[in-house]
């Protein structure tokens, strides 16, 4: 599987990893910004953009990763349901049930009915 195919198939997990990586990067930038200033009024913008922004991106990444897992489970349930229905269909009797005792013998295959019951 090539990289392009992997990205197309696992786009949600790729998005999650990108969001997590960006979140960590933003957190790092925010920490660097805060550490280079001695004034609170200069640090607070970094706290908002770097700290909360980084946490926001980490949250989005985690949410996308969990969504990908749930989507996988949903696909597995799809396959399970199809297999279950196929099994149930295969277990149905494909031969005609034998008539009860005392009834007329079944007509041979291909024979035409000559009388009609009222």
């Amino acid at each position: 599987m090539g990289v392009k195919t992997f990205v197309l198939v696992q786009w949600d997990r790729v998005f999650a990893w990108v969001a997590v990586a960006l979140g960590l990067l933003v957190l790092l930038i925010g920490w660097l910004g805060v550490s280079r200033s001695a004034f609170v009024f200069e640090q607070l913008p970094y706290v908002v953009s770097g700290g909360v922004g980084g946490l926001f991106l980490l949250g989005v990444g985690a949410m996308m990763w969990l969504s990908a897992d749930l989507r996988d489970e949903w696909r597995k349930l799809d396959a399970l349901e199809v297999a279950l229905l196929a099994t149930q269909q295969a277990e149905l009797p494909d031969e005609p049930v034998a008539p009860p005792l005392g009834s007329a013998a079944p007509a041979p295959r291909g024979a035409r009915r000559t009388s009609r019951s009222s």
Binding site: G59, V60, A62, M63, L66, S67, L70
Partner: peptide, 8 residues
């Protein structure tokens, strides 16, 4: 985001 995951 939490509601999205929990609903799924």
């Amino acid at each position: 985001s939490g509601a999205w995951v929990l609903t799924g």
